[in-house]
Design a protein around this nucleic acid. Sequence first.
DNA 1: TTTCCAATTGGAAACGTTTTATATAGCGTG
DNA 2: CACGCTATATAAAACGTTTCCAATTGGAAA
Lengths: 337, 337
Amino acid sequence: MNSNNVTIYDVAREAGVSMATVSRVVNGNPNVKPTTRKKVQDAIDRLGYRPNAVARGLASKKTTTVGVIVPDISNIFFADLARGIEDVATMYKYNIILGNSDSNRDKEIHLLNTLLGKQVDGIIFMGGRLHEDLVNEFKKSPVPIVLAATLNQGYDLPAVNIDYEQAAYDATEMLIGHGHKQVGFITGPLEQQINGEKKFSGYRRALEDAGLPFRENDVILGNYTYASGLEAMQKMLERDDCPKAIFAGTDEMALGVIHAIQDAGYSVPNDFEVVGHDNTRLATMIRPKLTTVVQPMYDIGAVAMRLLTKILNAEEIEEKNVVLPHRIERRDSLRND
Amino acid sequence: MNSNNVTIYDVAREAGVSMATVSRVVNGNPNVKPTTRKKVQDAIDRLGYRPNAVARGLASKKTTTVGVIVPDISNIFFADLARGIEDVATMYKYNIILGNSDSNRDKEIHLLNTLLGKQVDGIIFMGGRLHEDLVNEFKKSPVPIVLAATLNQGYDLPAVNIDYEQAAYDATEMLIGHGHKQVGFITGPLEQQINGEKKFSGYRRALEDAGLPFRENDVILGNYTYASGLEAMQKMLERDDCPKAIFAGTDEMALGVIHAIQDAGYSVPNDFEVVGHDNTRLATMIRPKLTTVVQPMYDIGAVAMRLLTKILNAEEIEEKNVVLPHRIERRDSLRND
DNA sequence: TTTCCAATTGGAAACGTTTTATATAGCGTG
DNA sequence: CACGCTATATAAAACGTTTCCAATTGGAAA
């Protein structure tokens, strides 16, 4: 009945061989005579035997399970990443245990320890910033850890990212190229490495290279959400010297920005031009469609997982720090040249 | 160093007690003298002992892990559900193994078997339709399975849903109440139980109750995506007798519908009125903001997981088939009464 | 003291595999 | 026909816990 509780012993008895032989058949070990293999396979089918992965994990010290830590799976952004991870994991016969950290340091550490307790074979981590405590735990980890869309900060961990600094530079430069002498930058908290050190500095470098002044209040910080983008832009619009070109740190914020502009009676791209970041599905779900920096989240996840499998299989690794290419997808929130 | 490979034996030796006692301390068993407990706890801290969950799972036949099968985690809809599940799981000390099925029957069955092989304590399943093969596997499952946002179809499985039929009725009725003699219905494939049997029949019943005729070509089927909603509405707009009120099966399709209308030079809600379904975050990320049926995905996930914990703890269960309340969130895609 | 019971602790089996070392069978060869 | 191989198969020892049952301890009651 319950295909359960039938063990390798039962199969061995049924097939008239020893459990070791059954184990070999199950694991595809070639040292089994074809006729024996068939006998065992038949017994397995007859009994509906399903190997117990927990026992297997204990004996072999491999669980074919990897841990995935993301800030919040309900965010389209991380969900995309997770899908990339899962697809490649499936391809390599791994399963994933998923945990949400809310970018909270204690939760991150707790989650990490839980996953290690569950004996995962490896971990993919994504978070806004690497706290020192966390990195110390990482260093003690008996299994490999790969960062996805998370900056390395000098700790020598395998990681998969795009060049955020250059991407922000490119976006800002594109806006400047459209004749703007002033570019607004609306993004998430600067404590987050990617914003604070990369996007922000790319933005400044572009201004500098164009000989434009950096103005403190052209930068507004939110929390990545639509609402915070909307609000930031509303605040921006109250000023007399409001920039007419906006680079938003995420697509979701960019949607908020565009709606704030439209709600105020202005037009995008005629009165204001906007560039977003990430190229989530949201980018085409707005009018005008959003011009945005393409950060291939699915690919980052997929590549990170592939990198992890390479480490697990002790394959040759050409580069532990992978930087995926980015580009800007031009859509209607920018005027034609 | 590596807090790993230190076992319960090491702790026992360090503390000068037996492994059984260490086990008791680790598991919070009250039958341990406080002084002994302290001694053991100190040894644990000193050695950095972390219990091996795999060995624990083998010995106790409980893994404190549940499997979650969703069609596609990168869909905002399922991601929300997953977050609800994970939050409650964490609350009850469970972890989740997440798998994507793409609503594919073979993948669903394969995933189910993998999860059972990993000895999960329970499973939460979400899918468009329950194939008979799948249900047969469910019946053989040694662990409980709970359906989330997935219709039971007469198989007596625990499930958490809203009343889709009534929700569709309410939405259609609301549109009719605004004076429309014709209501378009743009949704996903009818093979999917929720669409084909519930939403569709609620739509028809509302027409009927209002004495309006059902017209075959007022219904267009897509695949839930923004693009398919856009396309469906474009097709609808080509007709001379195009309905001026649209009920869309998902928010994402509703956004497509609204944009198709706007792209054609019409106004929402002045020329057309639109109601969506799900109340995902998308609903407020469009102008006009979308009036939509609230399907609380996070709650469905949370309640489903809670239900599963009740089953696992053999708690009293008042109702295996939970129907959560729904309502319609009025926003600007509908004219004021 | 002695006795007895409850509280605490220890020992060992069990969980279902993998894996290593060992045994056996079959077979060509000299 | 014995010998030594190779190809297969077996037996038994891990893996790191939980858990059942037995043993010990401590203290109160007699």
